[in-house]
Amino acid sequence: MNERRPRRLLLLAGSLGVLALFLLGGFIAGRVLVGGDDAAPAAAEGGGAAPATPSPAAGEDGRQPAPPRDVPVAPTVGGNDPVTGLPLDPDRTKPFWALPYLEAEARLPFFEGKLAGVTIRRAGDPSLEFVRQCPPGGYTEDAAASQGTPFDVTLPELLRGAAEPVRAMVLYCADGTLRGAEAEYFVHTAPERGWYGGSLFLMRYEPFDPAEPVAPVDLRAPRVREMTVAGGPAVVAVPPLPHIGWHDGAVVVYRDGIVTVIRSAGLPLADLLVLAEQVLQPR
C-alpha cells in the first residue's frame, strides 16, 4: 500500500503536468489568434497642444497635417547600392533610417558636363544665362498659361488628383511670345501607389544659345545616366533607392529647341519616367 502512494502521486503530478501543458498551449494559441503583444498600436489620435503657444489650427485650406499611417517595411529588391554600399531595402519603420543615406549622398560629387545634347551645370550661379534673352514682357504665375504650348508645365496626367500646385511662373517677351515656364507641385501620400510624399518641378525654356543648351541643375555624378525617354536621348538622374524614389531624381532633355528639366523627390524611377513621357509628349 505504501509502495503504491508514490506511484499514484507521480501519476497525479504527470496528469496535472499534461493538463498544464495543454492549458499553456491553448493560451499561446489564443494570444496568437488575437495578435498578442505584437498587435499593431492604435491609430493616431489627436493629442495635447504644445504648451507655450497655442496648438496650430488647420491650414488656411482647412487641412490638418498628418503623417501617413502605413509605413512600408517590405523588402523589394534586396542587395546593396553599388555607389554607397548601403542596403537597397532599409527598414523604413526605424527613426533616422535615412540619415546614413543622406550623408552618403551628400559626399558624392556633382555632375558637370555634356550628355544627351545638353550641358549640365551646377545650380546657383546667378551669372549663368541659360534662358533666351529678349526684351522682357512680364510673367504670369498661372501654369495654365503654358498649356498647349511647347512649354507646357501643367500637371502631368499621372499626378492628377495626387498633387497640388506650389508655384508657377510663365515668362513672356515684350512681343508676347513665350520664352519659358516653370512649375512646382507637392505630391501627396498615396501608399497604394508606393508614394510617401514628394515633389515635382518642371522647367521648360528656349536656351540662351540653341547650339549649346545649358541646364543648371545639381545632379550627383554616380546617379547620372543617358537613357532613351519618349523616343529620344535624355539625361536621367536615378533616385538612390529607385524602387521607392527616395531622394532626388531628374530627367533633362533638349528637344525641338526646348530644354526640359524635370526634378522629382520621393517618386520611384518608373513613375519619373512615365511623368517624363507625359511631359514630353504634346499635350
Partner: peptide, 8 residues
C-alpha cells in the same frame, strides 16, 4: 486546451 485558447 480550449480553456487555454479562451484565456489567451
Amino acid at each position: 486546451f480550449g480553456l487555454g485558447v479562451l484565456l489567451g
